[in-house]
Structure formats: C-alpha cells, structure tokens
C-alpha cells in the first residue's frame, strides 16, 4: 500500500439510494470529454478553480458560487458538460429529470422538491446535483389565482428558496431559456451558454465519432461545412449511423456503393430537432450531393490497435 487515501476510497455512492426516486446517478468514471467552444469551457474551468479555492475565498469572507444554469439548443452537450464537471471533482452527478418532480396533485411538486433537496443534503460524501429540463419546473410565474397556477407558483417559490440556499454544487439545464422565470434565472450564480459547435468543434466531433473508420482531412472538412448548424448529438448520431450502415451492409444486403445514397438514408432517419435551424445537408440535400461525392468511399478502417482507442 503506497497511498492510504487511494486504497480506501470512501464509497461515493453512500446515501444516493435516497434520491433514486427522482434521479439517475452518473458516476465519474463514465464521464466523457465534451468537445466545446472556448466560452463554456472557460466558464466551467473558472468555476472548478473557484470551488477548489474555497478556503482562500472564505478567508476574505467570500464563498465559491454554487449554482450554474446551462442553456442552449438541444443536444449541445449540457448533460455531458455537467457530468464532466462532476467527474473532475470526483463526485457523482445526481441527474434529476425535472418533469419527474411535477405532479398533478396539489402541493405535491413543491413537496417533491423539498424531499429531493433534503435527501441531497444527507449525502455524506457529496454530489453534484443536476436539474435537467429545468424549464418544466422553473417556468414563468402566473398572476392568476387559478388552482393549477397557484400550485405552479408554490412550486416555483419553493424552488427559488431551495436553489438560493443550496450549499452544494448545483447545475440546471434548459433549452428553453425564454420560458424560465426571470427571478429564477437570476438565482443562479452563473448562466453559461452551451451553443451549437463551430467549424473546429464539428470537425473534431465528426472525427471522434467516425473512428475507427478514417476519413481524410478534406473529407471531414467537407462534412463539417455541410453540417454547419448541427448539434453535437446530431453529428454523433449521423456518424454512428454511418458506421452502422457500413457494418450491417452485408447482413442487410443493402449496397453501400453510392456514398450519396448512404447519406440520403442517414439524413432521412436522423433529423435535427424541429426547433433549431436545419443544416445545409438536411435542408438542401441534393445541392450537397456533388460535395459528398468528393469523399473517398468506402472509408478505410484504422489498424486494429487503434480501434476504440480514442473514444
């Protein structure tokens, strides 16, 4: 034994069973590195530094911020980023699907929120709380005195006070920031935009999810251009669909000789979220055909030892 703290790790999952009713637990080791623009990356890094400097901050009467709101289009990596942050801290991410907290019964949603935060407080070794689809809980207050609206306001007030007084690390995510209550919005120590990827990021995402198949740089450039406006989730889905069709072609007896036809099939079955602008490849597929034909087809497969290496 060279290092006691390493051989006797505390069980970071202790107490998590109390929140399982509402939450999914994501462990640090399962986190992935998000591919993001410098903006959100820097915000997260700054926050990490702040959390670690707690004693220094406390010595001047400050505390690290404990809450952040991630907002941006669907599939841009908000959940992935929250998971990564938790993993950097070595803590489990307690992911709460906010709509699982709501209930049609009077006061029930507010009660659930209370229960959740109480249970989180009891987790001995700490965790990062992540409220996904946050807009379903924190949407704008209503001035009406109607029963369901009153209940909604109670829910929101409960949430406001619990978020404000929260001592741990809390992230919330929404892709409908317009719907969020303004007071709720202000309660967060940080508002971080996780936007659609730029060209550099798209290139990296396409490359990452095309492995172990290898496309030349020019081909990836072409694809990155044609998919401007696509979310990382969509790019991943597309590249994984591509790999699937290559691997399954012989079994399905579906020829893959024509690159344009393969992409036509992919584009038809992986469709971007209707709320976001459609990337070129989806909007005007036929106009992209000529560019697609420049991609060397079928792609080469990387040597075996590289397989799955860069996940």
């Amino acid at each position: 034994m060279s290092e006691p703290a390493r051989t006797r790790k505390p069980d970071i999952s202790a107490g998590l069973d109390q929140v399982e009713k509402f939450a999914t637990i994501l462990l640090p080791r399962d986190a992935e590195e998000p591919i993001l623009a410098p903006g959100p990356r820097y915000a997260i890094y700054e926050w990490l530094t702040e959390i670690r400097a707690r004693p220094d901050l406390e010595s001047v009467g400050l505390k690290p911020r404990s809450t952040a709101l991630l907002y941006g289009p669907p599939g841009t990596g908000k959940t992935t980023l929250a998971h990564h942050l938790a993993a950097r801290l070595g803590l489990p991410l307690v992911t709460v699907q906010a709509d699982r907290m709501t209930s049609k019964y009077m006061n029930e949603s507010a009660n659930n929120i209370g229960q959740l935060f109480d249970a989180i407080d009891k987790i001995k070794n700490g965790c990062v709380l992540f409220l996904d689809e946050f807009d379903s809980l924190g949407s704008k207050r209503s001035s009406s005195e109607h029963g369901t609206d009153k209940d909604r306001n109670l829910t929101l007030t409960t949430l406001l006070t619990r978020v404000e007084g929260f001592e741990g690390i809390l992230l919330a995510a929404t892709n409908r920031k317009e719907d969020l209550d303004t007071a709720m919005w202000r309660r967060f120590g940080m508002q971080i935009s996780v936007d659609l990827p730029g060209s550099e990021e798209r290139y990296a995402i396409l490359k990452r999810y095309s492995l172990p198949f290898e496309f030349p740089d020019d081909a990836l450039d072409t694809l990155a251009d044609l998919t401007a406006g696509a979310s990382p989730a969509l790019l991943r889905q597309m590249m994984e669909g591509l790999k699937r069709s290559i691997v399954l072609a012989p079994r399905l007896k579906k020829p893959i000789d024509d690159v344009v036809e393969v992409f036509r099939g992919l584009v038809a079955t992986t469709v971007p979220h209707p709320d976001v602008p459609q990337p070129h490849l989806w909007k005007k597929f036929d106009a992209c055909a000529a560019d697609l034909r420049t991609i060397p087809w079928p792609p080469e497969r990387a040597p075996a030892e590289k397989k799955g290496g860069a996940k």
């Binding site: 410098p38 903006g39 959100p40 940080m190 971080i192 935009s193 936007d195 730029g198 251009d225 401007a228």
Partner: peptide, 21 residues
C-alpha cells in the same frame, strides 16, 4: 461556414456566455 441562402444558420458564433469572453 456554409450559410443558408436566407442567412438562417450561423453556427460559427461562439457561445456568448454571459460572463465569458
């Protein structure tokens, strides 16, 4: 980036986080 004819898509703009350069 290739932009839509109607200028709809402009994904190149990096995230404009409130407190972020």
């Amino acid at each position: 980036d290739r932009r839509d004819d109607d200028g709809g898509v402009s994904a190149e703009a990096p995230a404009s986080a409130s407190d972020v350069d």
